[in-house]
Design a protein around this nucleic acid. Sequence first.
DNA 1: ATTAAATTAGTAACAATTATTATTATTGAG
DNA 2: CTCAATAATAATAATTGTTACTAATTTAAT
Lengths: 130, 130
Amino acid sequence: MIKKSSKQRDAIIQSVKNRRDHPTADEIYAQLRESYPNISLGTVYRNLAKLSEAGFITRISCIEGADRFDGDTSSHYHFQCITCRKICDIDMDVDTNLNAKVEKLLDAHVDDHMAMFFGTCCKCKGLAKI
Amino acid sequence: MIKKSSKQRDAIIQSVKNRRDHPTADEIYAQLRESYPNISLGTVYRNLAKLSEAGFITRISCIEGADRFDGDTSSHYHFQCITCRKICDIDMDVDTNLNAKVEKLLDAHVDDHMAMFFGTCCKCKGLAKI
DNA sequence: ATTAAATTAGTAACAATTATTATTATTGAG
DNA sequence: CTCAATAATAATAATTGTTACTAATTTAAT
């Protein structure tokens, strides 16, 4: 799929890998424009799609708004605050046994699973008290 | 939020509740047009949003394409085939202990969590063999 | 029945994403 | 190293999924 290298794609990989905030395509675009003032938003979208398809990064689909991307491809769960909409990683073991369990239940082949926890983050919880 | 009834909304609830295939707004629209030839797509979207906000149905966000809706609001996990993109329910206990665990880890308030398993369904697995 | 408010159909607007096209950059063969 | 082949790009147009708007209709409480 990916056949030649490019500075833009390298910068996109770097950006996603370095950030911890699960950015959207637009946020990555905004960041990269500082170093590459005429990078195209289409290039960002195209490369995020290629990179996630190739397994270099992970795409996270959100109920509201744009998809987000995670440079950490190791299996882990996420939490999303329903107030500020931010996503953060959860430092908790992933139950890989579930994959085999689901395989049996559905007679399917299971590659992986993802989990998203919903609630109110510590910051927004605090604000609510005021 | 919802203050008055309407035939259209009742039909939308019925459709989502009766179907087992986690339809998109467009699919529900297509179905309802058979009985309500001039129902508006906007009405379908607006009511799906209201109904899921009110907890009558559940919205499922997918990595590719449109959101899907589930008439079964009981907590359960989903499986999505990466080939045919269909979503099906998994008849497996939901680990509700995880919510409390995440609350402690993040000092957050956790309402719920969802899980999506990815792989190849039995049908598509079969087809691959041919 | 009257009336006020909610809901609708239809359409326009919008945001996120993908496709197109002409141009530029990368790479591998000679 | 040069240069053609072709992958990747910037810019822009088009598409898709969704929401907002408005005038007309329907609902429910007098």
